[in-house]
Design a protein around this nucleic acid. Structure first.
Lengths: 156, 156
DNA sequence: ATGATATAATTTAAGCTTAAATTATTTAGC
DNA sequence: GCTAAATAATTTAAGCTTAAATTATATCAT
């Protein structure tokens, strides 16, 4: 038990589980970072590139919603991706408020180069668990994540 | 399966597990944030206050090592905590390079007020899992986290 | 004692992230 | 058509985070 907290057993265990979850995420994240860094891509930028690669051109609003980040954040990420000429902004003709973010040829090349390396590093990082453990971990994380969604239909 | 990645089954499952782990951590983190925010404490600041509360006065180097963050980061966190008068810097007499970070009375009051609320929110967030599921999750996360530590004794 | 090396903290520059305010544009109601 | 409300993107200010360079101090080998 890594905590010094004095509370009920349930509370202490919750804190302990949370610390382990946070640290596991952090540790794996650290393992992944350098393999992106070698190619000059940050983790957040990679997320945008991957999304555009798999889903095609998207509005900034859609990117923000899918990544669960603020609109201002997407503005900055797309700014930085544009500096590398990995994406292009194109104003929608139908609705001039909207900006569509396109992957460029260079952007496509980068994601196609980096994605397999990234997935390889991830696969290696998760290889410390057996496949059945990975499955259990995934299932529990999914349940935990889903359980946090505030249900607006619930009568307070 | 939430990914669009085309690779081996093992790779696809690894990516999927990682997404679920990241999202679970993110979701629980979001649930925790407002309860700290109400008291004007950020998550990172809370980490420092909690550490000082449970372990007593610490050098900035030690704080950085325990939190797995950079020294520059600790400098800034302690700056911001000092602005609130929650901590005090005191130069060590033995070694004048060292700065010892002390929790003030006000800092102690804040952490004592916020900690139970934080733990309560956390316990509630984790309550979507059964106690045996929490235990399994903790065990798997610990194994996964530990497995990432680069072992310098291993012959490359 | 001196000079090389280590360590502790800070600074700087860059990027990530958010919330809140702002601008431009569209849509809906009248 | 005109006004009000909603939506898309940007800007701003604040904080988090890192890596690399800097400053001050301590330690170690001669």
């Amino acid at each position: 038990m890594a905590t010094h907290f004095k509370g009920t057993l349930e509370q202490t265990l919750a804190l302990d589980t949370w610390l382990k979850l946070s640290r596991a995420k952090e540790s794996v994240g650290r393992k992944l970072k350098p393999c992106l860094g070698q190619h000059g891509v940050t983790s957040a930028q990679f997320g945008v590139l991957e999304m555009l690669y798999h889903l095609g051109t998207l509005n900034q609003t859609v990117i923000a919603r899918k990544m669960l980040v603020s609109g201002g954040n997407v503005t900055m990420l797309v700014d930085n991706l544009e500096k590398h000429s990995w994406v292009e902004r194109r104003r929608s003709q139908k609705d001039r408020r909207v900006i569509k973010v396109h992957l460029t040829t260079a952007g496509k090349a980068v994601i196609e180069q980096v994605l397999p390396i990234h997935v390889g590093a991830l696969t290696e990082a998760l290889a410390v668990l057996t496949s059945s453990e990975r499955e259990t971990l995934g299932m529990l994380c999914k349940k935990l994540g889903r359980g946090q969604q505030t249900d607006p239909t619930r009568t307070g």
